[in-house]
Design a protein around this nucleic acid. Sequence first.
DNA 1: GCGCATATTATTGTCCGACAATCCGACAGG
DNA 2: CCTGTCGGATTGTCGGACAATAATATGCGC
Lengths: 245, 245
Amino acid sequence: MFEPLGYAPAYLRVSEAIRDRILRRDLKEGQALPTETELARQFEVNRSTVREALRKLESSGLLGRRAGGKRLYVTRPSRESVGGGLSQALTLHETRVVDVWEALQAVQPGIAQAAALRRTPAALERLAASAQRFAGRRANRDLAVEDVADFFNALGEASDNPVFVLLNEPLLRLLKPSLAVIIDRVPQARGRIESAQKHIVEAVAAQDAETAATWMMRHVRDFRRGYEVAGIPLSTEVGQDLDVS
Amino acid sequence: MFEPLGYAPAYLRVSEAIRDRILRRDLKEGQALPTETELARQFEVNRSTVREALRKLESSGLLGRRAGGKRLYVTRPSRESVGGGLSQALTLHETRVVDVWEALQAVQPGIAQAAALRRTPAALERLAASAQRFAGRRANRDLAVEDVADFFNALGEASDNPVFVLLNEPLLRLLKPSLAVIIDRVPQARGRIESAQKHIVEAVAAQDAETAATWMMRHVRDFRRGYEVAGIPLSTEVGQDLDVS
DNA sequence: GCGCATATTATTGTCCGACAATCCGACAGG
DNA sequence: CCTGTCGGATTGTCGGACAATAATATGCGC
């Protein structure tokens, strides 16, 4: 019947005040934040309180530190930061590999399509280079996995759609461990990935959205076959390795 | 030649230690965290340091507070928390309505498909109820928007795929403001949404994945028409209203 | 004047101790 | 069983302190 009358601790109000200024683009990316002491003075709270607020913003990826630096700068949440948060959440929601795969299947053809339509020459080159790198590296298992992920990332960037870019990251992160197993256990996996990537690159180069989507569908479907051949149960939960950092 | 040798401030190491225990399911959801003083004792750091660590985990959604409560409990990141973070990130990446729309177009048919295949009777009922609610409410603009979002959410839940559930939230959040404008300015919008929802519900009821996906595609494509008719430029940036909370 | 090493200063990370507000649990009374 | 009271535990916030080091100014040689 009654709402709880809202009270917010000071550290929260401070963090929201700063966050709003950032979202409003009032504090621009790359700009240095005032010092903790100065913020404490302006908000009229203790420095400890300011620090608690800063920690919140830091872990939302809105504030960051330049390497080896001391002061905080306004940053936009990076792919890694967003990916870390989401994949962490998915892990705790008991996501299974089949769930990730299904999402991949739903979204990747659309990304391929968009990439084919809008790729710049530079993005195309990056994509081709990624495929090349995977094809040329027959040795290391983990590097191969990184290359596959990089291919998807390059495609996301080529689509020039930040939603796709940010969505890709967590899915790939969760995919990687099982992909490593597939590459280890399924001899023909590398070849099939290589072939799919080649066709996708060609379609993107030709700006043929339809073909790009089709090959991507096959590519993703192949992963599912990979799970079966490698003997990974589809109901395996992802993220038991917790490499989030 | 050399990596910078890793140093991490204590508050970070504490927060990572706790986070790992949570991700490892060592600390289970719903469990109460030890008190700040106790944590400080165990980690052998000051309580202020512990508090900074807790603020980080709090804003990743891994720790939460029961309404009006004081102690912290282990929680899984809620849809809202994930959605807030992601939509905040997308806002800062200058995402445009057309980007969100494109992502919706890519992902929603897949969700509809999965929902059709796996919906439980309960989920179907929830979905139908949501459609009903939208159809029956011809008055308020904002409530109508909420109903549309709820329909997508219900579909996501029916798909029984946490990836879809969590992905939906930020997209809907960013979609809402423009959707409100569409409903205001495009007289036939309500009717078309109502019709699409009806067909989707029917297809999901019949477990006809193909039809569900097809109608969803039409439904999403309609939004794009809506933008054009309502005179919203597709390159409008989303999230200028910053209702993240 | 300019580049570079060096000295100063400012800022962060961490600690300590304190205190008010208030949530929690127990306990008594109707 | 519900309500009111009470004491202890816990959080939120404060002030001050200090070492380490990043940032900045200073001086020097050219």
